[in-house]
Structures are given as C-alpha cells and as structure tokens.
Design a protein around this nucleic acid. Structure first.
Length: 211
DNA sequence: GACCAGGTCCTTG
DNA sequence: CAAGGACATGGT
C-alpha cells in the first residue's frame, strides 16, 4: 500500500472524528447484532430495524430460538428486508454454527478473533463484511469493517488501494482498539451517506483540504 | 417505472 | 479469474 494512501486514511479518520465526535452506531446485544448483520445485506437499515422488531415480537430475536424455529415464521418476520428466503436460510446456518458448532454465544466470546473470523466465513451466506461486522459490533473485537459506503468514500478521498486491501490498510493505520474501529467505520458511513453519491462525490473536499 | 439499498453465492466465458 | 445474474422488498 502506498504511503500516500496511509496518509489520506489518517487524514480521513482525524477529520471525521472532529466532525462527528462520538456517535451511537449499531447498538444491541450480540445475538441481535449477528442477526442484523445478515438482514442488512444489500438492504437499508431502517428496514432491518422493522424486521428486528418483528423478530422480537415473535420471540425469534436470538440464535437459539431461530435455530429451532419454523423457517416460514422467520421468513414472515423478515420479509421487509428483501431476499427473505435466502436470509432466513442464512440465519439458520449462523444459528447452527453458533449454537451447535461453537456451543453457544458465550463460548464464541472466548474464541480468538482470527479463528472466529474463519469460522464465521465458513458459514454459508456470511462473507467478509458480515463476518467483520459481527466481530466488530457484536463481539467488540478490534476489526475494521469495509462496506460499499466505505469503499465509495475513500475513492472519493483519492485512496487508490483496491477494496480487498482496505481492511488491512485501515487496521495498519488505526490503533488496535475496538472503540476506534467501530467509531471510525460509523463516521465514514455517515459521511458517505450524506456527501458521496454513488457516482459522484460532492464534498470530500472536507477531507482533502486542510489538516 | 427505473434505480438503489450497510452482500453473497453461483454460473459463464 | 472477471463479469453477470439471482435473490426480493421498500423507498425515492
């Protein structure tokens, strides 16, 4: 990775921290974060929240209940997030991994980050972004999440490193600290939503100018 | 009606 | 291995 990319990332991190300060992002217990991580795939967060409410209402907002629940009931509860049949299957697969393979969420807490990440990636329907979101926001590990917004935002700011290396780039720049990882990712997404259109970035000047 | 959303997997060339 | 398609509902 180029020195100038690292430099830009440091600048982005600093500027956005100054702009947003501490913001609440992706609250909830570990089970809810894991479920939300699946539901938010290619879907707006507002729709995910509605689905989470539905799941709570049916006592299906935990992996232990999802594991044994009727798939149709899960599908109905999460319909508003789209891809509901696919996602119900992914939730089932994650629930089996967590409850059966790992022996429960408490046991997962004790698994080292590297191994837990590999385990999650082995679950059908969990890719890098979903796994890293679970690690960062569910298990409070010092893992930086790269999503479409992050990629778009750093492009906007002139970072040239390809998407598949952004996680390493950010983790090499940031301190190995969960709070920093989760806040920084939150800042970037909020910024991207507001200023970085899909094809055009209007305001990354904020990051590119001054210091 | 077209286009997009806090992806991932599978199929093709 | 890159590119394209499928999955599906809800908001602009």
């Amino acid at each position: 990775m180029s020195a100038s990319d690292s430099f830009k990332v440091r600048k982005i991190v600093r500027a956005l921290k100054k702009k947003y300060g501490k913001i609440p992002w992706w609250p909830g217990d570990c089970d809810e974060v894991m479920i939300g991580a699946i539901l938010t795939q290619q879907t707006r967060w507002e729709n995910v929240e509605r689905a989470l409410d539905e799941l709570h209402r049916r006592d299906l907002c935990s992996l232990s209940t999802i594991r044994t629940a009727d798939s149709t009931a899960i599908e109905e509860a999460i319909r508003c997030t789209g891809f509901y049949r696919i996602k119900a299957g992914r939730l089932k697969a994650l629930a089996t991994f967590a409850e059966v393979t790992c022996g429960g969420v408490q046991k997962m807490e004790k698994i080292p980050t590297r191994a837990l990440r590999e385990g999650l990636l082995g679950v059908h329907g969990i890719g890098e972004e979903t796994a890293d979101s679970i690690l960062c926001y569910g298990f409070s590990r010092p893992v930086f999440v790269i999503d479409a917004y992050t990629d778009r935002m750093v492009r906007c700011a002139g970072v040239t490193e390809p998407r598949n290396r952004l996680k390493d780039l950010f983790e090499s720049v940031l301190p190995e600290n969960n709070e920093t990882c989760r806040q920084t990712h939150a800042h970037i997404v909020e910024y991207a939503k507001e200023f970085c259109g899909k094809k055009r970035c209007d305001a990354c000047i904020l990051v590119n100018s001054n210091g």
